[in-house]
Every structure is written in structure tokens, then in C-alpha cells.
Design a protein around this nucleic acid. Structure first.
Length: 628
RNA sequence: GCCCACGUAGCUCAGUCGGUGGAGCACUUCCUUGGUAAGGAAGAGGUCAUCGGUUCAAGUCCGAUCGUGGGCUCCA
């Protein structure tokens, strides 16, 4: 007999409905799934008991995940039909789309992708319902064994006794769900690429073929995403780095090693000058350590034990040395060079420290992942009671700098990894210190279990560039272990020796990576204060060269980074070239300017300005410098 | 490091069935002296990544090595 039950909807309204009502019948058009008493379920579920219900919109983060996960199922469906011997493994959604890994005898080709995509469209058009079925584990194992899906069977062995299977048409997959009501809800999707991967991500396992795709609730979303990819390709720092003549990576010199050309070196110098100034303003002291330190020291620090794979070693007159992968050692030696009083602390040592790490060849990527890089590194040695203030100071520093470059950012707290040094108690204290600072400042963050450095937990700052992609740059690491290992002490007000705490931190991170991110963020059109070339002088004809030469000298003497293009070419041609070089100001010099003693600036935005005196132009440029 | 793809002039890219390698841009010279995104002409430029193999003959087919790209894994 039918019975009424009371449910609470997400808008707080209580409603009386018939027992056994399908969620589908309560949902609006945008809903793709529901949360019933917090549990995510399909819309095909019925309601049997009093519950609080909210619907998951296809436009929400969760809804988008469901759409994409269902798209992965549709892709697997198409693949199984076209390539019946392919074996299913996993197919989750990702931040930007979805993928599915298959075990197949050969890699999929772009042509295969086209075919799969076409078949997917048909499956979508057929509007097949996703049907959920709960079965016992034994039954599921039998089913998938019969289909020869050995990866599914392997996975099943780790699952609880009741599992769910989803079907659409003839396709079935082991899956927790939930899924869209039907395949027809997939309005826009595209397959993007294929690549190799391994069963369970382990290189010792079977090689799998991964197909990547993406899906959106509306065609416009897909179009925007593809447009973003195209934009990202145009902004690729490797492409712009060559076009703007900033840097190169030479096969002869070695992979992962950056060669800065004059403009790239200028850009880096500007950033480094900025960094020195800002650190001095904040009570840091600049220090410089050597590239090579004796192996014994790396053994003492634990680097040899925990970081050896990434280090380079060399021998000098029978002594073993390690090339530094981090800057902390010499900073600790500086600390140890005298007896420290509690009154001396905190000590903040800053170094633009160049380090070398052996990154695996497949991990290298332009400026973003290299083998030799320079960190804006600092080590702060302080008393335990100063720790919170110091961490907060760094968080403020990060915020100031990121704001200035126009980056938004997110934070993550990483905790103790398996391979690590130090006592449990110290790890607890260090982690707590970072947590307290984050909470004290009311900052939001996520937690990454087991992702910390080997000597301490860390706060990582992931900045988001103009295209919404995130990059790890700044990091703050609390370390009780190194001071212990090196027996760092200070004399307290009680006359006793005490152990200081060490903070490792970087703000921009690595200059190489940060410059790579900057190039993409600004699409190569750097703001005036950062632009390696701020202005270029363009003569209208050859007879203006003597005057232009005088102006050039003056601008250069006044510290403007100015180039000249006095070639025998038409003005339009020179403007075009300067434009492509993304130089902020083009300074036109012809009869008029010569007579008036001026120059006529044109911004790279296309805006032409009236004749200006040199002084006036310099003030114009200076007015565009940011203040911090 | 692993999987797959790729490597032709400084750059972007053609090069068919194995039969003595091309274009555009850039560069050099000449003509042109032109006011806000490409004036014209001529010239020069290559160990087809490297090494080896198959073949009468290899940019082209095969193998190895190096490098690059997309992923995996890892990270500043």
C-alpha cells in the first residue's frame, strides 16, 4: 500500500511525497544526480524513507564530474564495440575532462580516436539510460571473468561484498556511480589525446593505453575550453622564449639547462633586483654559499640518505663533494659560525641560490622543470615562540608579491612522507605551527597527506595564471630536524642552550619556473617595469639618425631600457617588428620631432601619443611602475 | 626512468613508389627615403639529429644512441 513520507529539500522546504517516488520526478532539468542524506545517488533511485534531499546540478563541480565520468563510460562503450579485445581498467573524471585506460595490443591512433568519437556520438544520440544494478561481489567476479575483464576482477577483489554495476545498452562496467540518467545528457564532448600509462600507475606493471577527452554541459563550454587550449599553445613559454629571444636550451650544453640570452637575462636581473630589495626591506640578510660542499656534510644533513638520487657528485683531490640541490647547508654553517643569543633571533638568511637536481629525462619541460635552477631561498632560524610570527610574515610576503604580479593562488599543507627524518613529536609540532599560522590568518587550504619534504611539513602555494592553470612556486617548510642534526643552539635568557627552529621558504620558487609562468601569464607582453626592452626608437628616414642617436643616448643614460631601429625600412615595417616583439613603447622620430625636440610614443596597444619631451616620456614610464 | 610520437636551412614547414633536397619568413647586397602592423630585386645558406645496417642506390626502409613533444611517475 502506498504511503506518504516527508522529505526535506535543499531549499529547506518540507514536502510530503509517496513512498517509492523516483528522485527523477522531483528533480529539475539541470539535475544529474541527488544527495540523499548526504549520499550521492542516481536520479533513478526511489525514496523509501524520510530523508533530506538535494539535487546535483550539471553546472556544479560535482555535476560536471558526473557528466565526465559518464562520458568516460560512453567512450569505453565505443572502444569495446570497435576494439572488442581491449580490456577495461579505470576511467575517472579529472579537473579538465576524463580518461579511460585500456589494455590493448597496440596504441590507439588519431584515426582510431575519430572512429571512437563518431561511435560515441551515436551512443549519445540513442539516449541509452544508465542502469544501476547491485550485485554480490562473487556474482560480479563471475560476470567479469566471463567477459575476460581481468583488471575488473583484480579490482573487485579489493572491494566490499556488495558492488554496483552500471549498464548502458550492451555495455557494462563495474562502477560506484552515480551516473547521468542517460547518455543523451552528454551535449558536448571531444577526445583529445592518447598516451601510455601503467596499470595502477606502476612502471613494473602492464602498459596501458590512455585516451583523454573532455565533456561539457553545453557546446559553448567545450568551445571555450578548446579556445583556452589554443590560447595556451600560443602563450607557450617555449615558443615565446624563442620568438622573444629570451632563452634557449641547447642539446650540446645538455637537457634541462637554461641558457639566458640578453633579454632573458635582463628579465631575470630585474626580478632578482626586486627580490633583493624586498628581502632587505623585510629584515633578511643576503648570503652566498658555494656550489659544492663536502659529501660528509650531505651525510650529516640526511640529504645523502634521502635525496641522493637527485644529486650530482664529484671528486676533488680524493675528497668527495656533492653539488648542492638545496641551499640550507651553508646557511646552517653561517649560523654555527658564532654563538647565538636569543636576542639575535630571528635570523633570516636570503640567497639567490643556484641548485642542481637530477630530474629524470622525461620530466623536463622548458623552464618549468629543469635540472639547474636558482631559488629565491631563505632560511629563518628562530625561537619556538617566534615561529608563528615568522610564518605569518612569510604568508604576508607571498601575498604582497603574488598580488603585485596579478596572480591568484591556493594553498596546500603537506604532511610527513614515508621517507623522512626527525621524531614524531617534532613533526607534530612543525605541522601544528603551520596549521596555526594558516588558521590564525583565516586562510583556506587543502591537506596533502604524506607529501611533505623529508625534513619537515610544508605549505605549498599554487598560483593561478591568466588562463586559470596552477603552478607550484612558493613553499614554506617548518623544520625541527636539521637544527637537531647540526646541533644548532642559541643561549636563552636563562643562560642555557636551546634549539632554534628552522623555516625553509621560497617566494617566487625557482627563477626559471617563475619566469616561465610569467611569460605565459603575460603572453610575453610584460608590464613596463619587467619588460627587458621598454622602448624602441624608430626613425622615419635615414636623415633622422643623428637626432635619434642623441635621444637614444639620453634615454639610456636615464636608465630606460631602450633599443634602436635605425634601419633603412619603412616606419610601418619597423612598427610591425616591434609589435611582434611586444615592446611596450615604440618611439617615432621624424622631421616633426626633430624640430620640436620631442619623440612620439606609440603603445603596443596601438595607441599613438602626441610628441613628448624625453623627460616627460621617462615620467610616463616611471608612473607605470608598481609600488609594493 | 617508462609508453607512444616526432627530429629536413636560424624559424615554420613541403619532400609521392628508395633514384643527386624545396618554399615562406629571417639573413646579406643593391634599388627605394617612405609618418604608425610586411616597398622591390638579387644572393647566400643543408653531414636531412648521430652512428650503424639493408640496397646498385637511403632524407625516405631497419636498428641503436641523443634530443624534443604528449602522458605516467616525480617536483621549485
Amino acid at each position: 500500500m502506498e504511503r506518504e513520507i516527508a522529505v526535506t529539500l535543499s531549499n529547506g522546504i518540507r514536502k510530503s511525497i509517496a513512498k517509492g517516488t523516483k528522485l527523477q520526478d522531483l528533480a529539475d532539468e539541470e539535475a544529474v544526480a541527488a544527495q540523499v542524506d548526504g549520499a550521492l545517488v542516481d536520479l533513478s533511485r526511489t525514496i523509501e524513507n524520510e530523508a533530506s534531499i538535494s539535487f546535483v546540478s550539471i553546472h556544479s563541480k560535482k555535476g560536471l564530474e558526473i557528466l565526465r565520468h559518464s562520458s568516460a563510460h560512453v567512450m569505453a562503450h565505443a572502444v569495446k564495440e570497435l576494439f572488442p579485445t581491449a580490456k577495461l581498467t579505470f576511467g575517472p573524471s579529472t579537473d579538465t575532462g576524463f580518461y579511460y585506460d585500456f589494455d590493448y595490443e597496440r596504441p590507439f591512433t588519431p584515426k582510431d580516436l575519430e572512429m571512437i568519437e563518431k561511435r560515441m556520438s551515436e551512443i549519445v544520440k540513442e539516449d541509452l539510460p544508465f542502469v544501476r544494478q547491485e550485485v554480490s561481489k562473487e556474482e560480479a567476479i563471475k560476470t567479469f571473468e566471463a567477459l575476460g575483464e581481468r583488471y575488473k576482477v583484480e579490482h573487485l577483489e579489493e572491494l566490499p561484498d556488495r558492488v554496483s554495476i552500471y549498464r548502458q545498452g550492451t555495455f557494462m562496467d563495474l562502477c560506484g556511480g552515480p551516473h547521468l540518467p542517460s547518455t543523451g545528457r552528454i551535449k558536448a564532448f571531444k577526445l583529445l589525446s592518447v598516451s601510455g600509462t601503467y596499470w595502477r600507475g606502476d612502471a613494473r606493471n602492464q602498459v596501458l593505453q590512455r585516451i583523454y577527452g573532455t565533456a561539457f554541459p553545453e557546446p559553448q563550454g567545450l568551445e571555450d575550453y578548446l579556445h583556452m587550449l589554443e590560447e595556451a599553445r600560443k602563450r607557450d613559454h617555449r615558443k615565446l622564449g624563442r620568438e622573444l629571444d629570451l632563452f634557449s636550451i641547447s642539446e650540446e650544453a645538455g637537457p634541462g639547462l637554461i641558457i639566458y640570452h640578453p633579454k632573458g637575462a635582463m628579465l631575470r636581473t630585474i626580478l632578482e633586483d626586486f627580490e633583493r630589495r624586498e628581502h632587505l626591506r623585510r629584515g633578511y640578510q643576503i648570503v652566498i654559499g658555494p656550489q659544492l660542499l663536502r659529501l660528509d656534510l650531505w651525510k650529516q644533513s640526511g640529504h645523502f640518505e634521502n635525496y641522493r638520487d637527485k644529486m650530482y657528485f664529484t671528486k676533488v683531490e680524493d675528497s668527495e663533494y656533492g653539488i648542492k640541490p638545496m641551499n640550507c647547508l651553508s646557511h646552517m654553517l653561517i649560523y654555527k659560525s658564532q654563538i647565538r643569543s636569543y636576542r639575535d633571533l630571528p635570523l633570516r638568511y636570503f640567497e639567490l641560490g643556484t641548485v642542481h637536481r637530477h630530474e629524470k629525462s622525461g620530466e623536463l619541460h622548458g623552464l618549468l622543470r629543469v635540472r639547474g635552477f636558482t631559488q629565491d631561498d631563505a632560511h629563518i632560524l628562530c625561537r619556538p615562540d617566534q615561529l608563528n610570527d615568522e610564518i605569518c610574515g612569510i604568508l604576508d610576503f607571498v601575498d604582497d608579491v603574488m598580488r603585485m604580479f596579478g596572480f591568484r593562488y591556493e594553498m596546500e599543507l603537506s604532511t610527513r612522507p614515508e621517507k623522512s627524518i626527525g621524531s614524531d613529536e617534532d613533526w607534530e609540532r612543525a605541522t601544528q605551527a603551520l596549521l596555526n599560522a594558516l588558521r590564525g590568518k583565516g586562510l583556506s587550504f587543502e591537506i596533502n597527506e604524506g607529501e611533505g619534504a623529508f625534513y619537515g611539513p610544508k605549505i605549498d602555494v599554487k598560483l593561478k595564471d591568466a588562463l586559470g592553470r596552477s603552478w607550484q612556486c612558493a613553499t614554506i617548510q617548518a623544520d625541527f630536524a636539521m637544527p637537531e642534526r647540526f646541533d644548532l643552539t642559541y643561549v636563552g635568557s636563562d643562560g642555557q642552550r636551546h634549539r632554534p627552529v628552522m623555516l625553509h621558504r621560497v617566494i617566487l620558487g625557482a627563477m626559471e619556473r617563475f619566469i616561465g609562468v610569467l611569460i605565459e601569464h603575460y603572453a610575453g607582453a610584460f608590464p613596463v617595469w619587467l619588460a627587458p626592452v621598454q622602448a624602441i626608437l624608430l626613425t622615419v628616414t635615414e636623415r633622422h639618425i643623428p637626432y635619434a642617436e642623441k635621444v637614444w643616448q639620453e634615454l639610456m643614460q636615464k636608465g630606460i631600457r631602450v633599443e634602436k631601429d635605425f634601419r633603412n625600412e619603412k616606419l610601418g615595417f619597423k612598427i610591425r617588428e616591434a609589435q611582434i616583439q611586444k615592446i611596450p613603447y615604440m618611439l617615432v622620430v621624424g622631421d616633426r620631432e626633430e624640430k620640436e625636440g620631442t619623440l612620439s610614443p606609440r603603445r603596443r596597444t596601438g595607441e599613438a601619443m602626441r610628441g613628448m619631451k624625453v623627460e616627460e616620456f621617462i615620467n610616463q614610464i616611471r608612473s607605470e611602475y608598481p609600488s609594493l
